[in-house]
């Protein structure tokens, strides 16, 4: 099965160690959230997953896709395999397109695809990201949320098997976050999506598999409960809103963090269970 595999990766910028013995696999169709605070190495790991690094820099360990290191992939092959969106969307614009439509068509044009296919992919990505109304606008004059959707649309037009998004929600207002999150949830299941996040709630709303990155190491890996309620996660990122609300309301005081409910349904179940037990 197709996968991006990171094994035993250690990397430093100068003398600053950024990643340490990271091993991880992103399988086809995965919905993976990688959580970590500022300076935890998220962006660097995102760049390695997408093949932007090592970029000739010294490192230990390997990152492969389908068993081959990224360095062996041609630009065109890699573009069709993986795409990366970043935290500051304006930096992820190509700087070559005068309109939103041109920006989305930029990748497929570079691949020299037949015109009919470029047109079809562009229109599909426009619709998917609800950018039709903005198709003729100048990308640099869009709002942050619109730009983020554009970056995702431009990535989708290349039909990558892996979509890596580095804190796509961080600089957005609540409405734009909602927009982008629902866009991510609507993506077809044949694409793997890796969401790098600082917010446990956003991760919880989207992902099925979770990783906690702490000071460049993987501190936890597994289900939402394994990771989001892990001691290190609670310490660095805080509790997700449902368990936090439970704590603030004084509910389940007898439970450890790792046993708190993660969703409303779980909370209801626990309350009902407790009531039944009392009866």
């Amino acid at each position: 099965m197709a996968a991006i595999a990171v094994s035993d990766l250690t990397f430093a910028f100068g003398d600053k160690r950024v990643l340490e013995n990271v091993s991880l696999e992103v399988r086809a169709g995965a919905r993976l959230a990688i959580l970590g605070g500022n300076g935890s190495g998220k962006t660097t790991l995102a760049h390695f997953l997408a093949g932007w690094l090592p970029d000739g820099r010294p490192h230990q360990g390997t990152v492969t896709c389908d068993g081959r290191p990224w360095a062996e992939w041609s630009l065109a092959e890699r573009a069709c395999a993986v795409q990366l969106g970043g935290q500051v969307p304006v930096r992820h614009l190509s700087g070559r397109a005068f309109t939103v439509r041109e920006e989305i068509a930029f990748g497929p044009e570079n691949l020299n695809l037949p015109l009919a296919e470029i047109r079809e992919r562009t229109e599909r990505a426009l619709a998917q990201c609800r950018l039709e109304q903005l198709a003729e606008r100048d990308p640099f004059t869009l709002s942050g949320g619109e730009q983020q959707r554009l970056v995702i649309a431009a990535a989708l037009a290349l039909e990558p098997r892996f979509l890596i998004l580095d804190e796509p929600l961080t600089n957005l207002d609540p409405e734009a976050r909602e927009h982008v999150l629902s866009l991510l949830l609507s993506l077809p299941r044949d694409r793997a999506v890796v969401l790098f996040e600082t917010s446990p709630d956003a991760a919880l709303a989207f992902a099925e598999e979770f990783v906690l990155l702490d000071s460049g190491r993987i501190a936890a890996h597994g289900s939402a409960r394994d990771v989001l309620l892990h001691g290190d996660a609670v310490r660095t990122l805080g509790l997700p809103s449902i368990p936090r609300a439970c704590r603030e309301l004084g509910l389940f005081g007898e439970l450890a963090d790792s046993e708190l409910p993660l969703s409303l349904d779980e909370a209801k179940g626990l309350i009902r269970g407790a009531a039944d037990a009392r009866r």
């Binding site: 093949g51 970029d55 990224w70 992939w73 041609s74 630009l75 065109a76 890699r78």
Partner: peptide, 8 residues
């Protein structure tokens, strides 16, 4: 990164 064109 493998490159398929010669570039200035």
């Amino acid at each position: 990164m493998a490159s398929s064109t010669t570039r200035l």
